[in-house]
């Protein structure tokens, strides 16, 4: 019996888990939303509408069917890529989500890239200068970076770079196909605001991982062969520290996709987070559940990828579920 069988078994179990997670999540979302107080039709028509008009709109929105029928129709539709029609905007939910993904995905990627480009070198530098003033200074910086509420930091960035220096816009989003340069400029400040805490966390994780690695035997061996500490860290340490860093990156990506709502608000960006927020207040339940399930899929899939990556790198983990 070879490792191949173990690997296949592991994959099958993980995929089954993935599917089960999604199904249960869909059920939870549907039930929760069905419990929400507040009539979507009344919300749209406001305080002077006649009861007949409200009733007419409810019928138009398809709110009259029984719950289990609506649930099956929803899940069945999603399997063939049909997320239904938004009740307030009367447009395909899939289309609305795709529009928002064009903002949220690049924004998350920018924040990831910036946090890697800034965070990892700081972590490496701090590890090389461990215990020295540089290390302390960098770690104080990293502690502060995690501790600043991001809507506050976002506003400070705007005041400096948009209001005072006028280098970048205060926010807003120009569609990519209209002016990619302008779209990019609009994403710069929110990207930085999102990246700050992530970069700080990465720097700390990188430093800790490197410090651990340098205490292990093969680094000592390398140093005994005449390498300097810095050389040893570069040649051997960084590569070995990448595993914990990759895990954090996976977590961060999952978080960024959903967690940008506050920064989207500060920079008036039409992202997925704000879509869900407005859709709930407008009781556009079809849109809310579609967008939420997409987030759940992205988060779960990211975690799956991280787990699989782990299993390939470190086959010992396959025995138990991760």
């Amino acid at each position: 019996m070879g490792g191949g069988f173990h690997m296949t078994l592991f994959l099958v179990r993980r995929m089954a888990g993935f599917a089960a997670t999604l199904f249960v999540a869909a059920l939870v979302i549907f039930l929760l939303l069905d419990l929400l107080p507040g009539d979507p039709a009344r919300f749209i028509l406001g305080i002077n509408a006649t009861p007949e008009a409200v009733a007419a709109l409810r019928t138009q929105m398809g709110l009259d069917a029984p719950a289990h029928e609506r649930f099956l129709a929803w899940v069945g539709g999603m399997l063939v890529g049909d997320f239904g029609l938004s009740t307030t905007q009367r447009l395909p939910v899939a289309e609305l989500i795709a529009e928002r993904m064009a903002v949220t995905l690049p924004l998350s990627l920018i924040a990831m890239v910036v946090s890697v480009v800034v965070g990892l070198p700081i972590g490496i530098l701090a590890a090389m200068r461990r215990g020295k003033a540089t290390d302390t200074a960098l770690m104080v910086l990293a502690q502060t970076g995690v501790a600043i509420p991001n809507f506050w930091f976002g506003m400070l960035l705007t005041l400096v770079f948009a209001v005072t220096l006028r280098w970048l816009p205060t926010g807003g989003f120009i569609p990519w196909d209209e002016d990619a340069g302008a779209a990019m400029r609009g994403m710069t400040l929110p990207g930085l605001a999102l990246a700050l805490p992530q970069a700080s966390i990465l720097a700390r994780v990188m430093r800790t991982a490197l410090v651990d690695v340098t205490e292990q035997d093969f680094i000592r061996t390398a140093r005994a062969k005449g390498m300097t500490k810095s050389e040893a860290i570069w040649r051997h340490g960084v590569r070995n520290a990448l595993l914990p860093v990759l895990t954090i990156l996976g977590l961060q990506f999952a978080f960024l996709i959903a967690g940008t709502i506050i920064v989207e608000n500060v920079f008036y960006l039409p992202g997925l987070g704000r879509l869900i927020f407005t859709a709930i207040s407008e009781r556009d339940l079809v849109l809310v559940r579609g967008a939420t399930i997409v987030l759940v899929v992205v988060t779960t899939a990211t975690m799956l990828v991280v787990d699989l990556a782990y299993a390939f790198v470190d086959p010992r983990l396959k025995g138990r579920d991760a």
């Binding site: 939870v28 996709i257 959903a258 987030l295 759940v296 988060t299 975690m303």
Partner: peptide
């Protein structure tokens, strides 16, 4: 799996 499901729902 329970932990996966809980984790899959972003806190916001």
């Amino acid at each position: 799996r329970l932990s996966d499901i809980t984790f899959a729902f972003p806190a916001v």
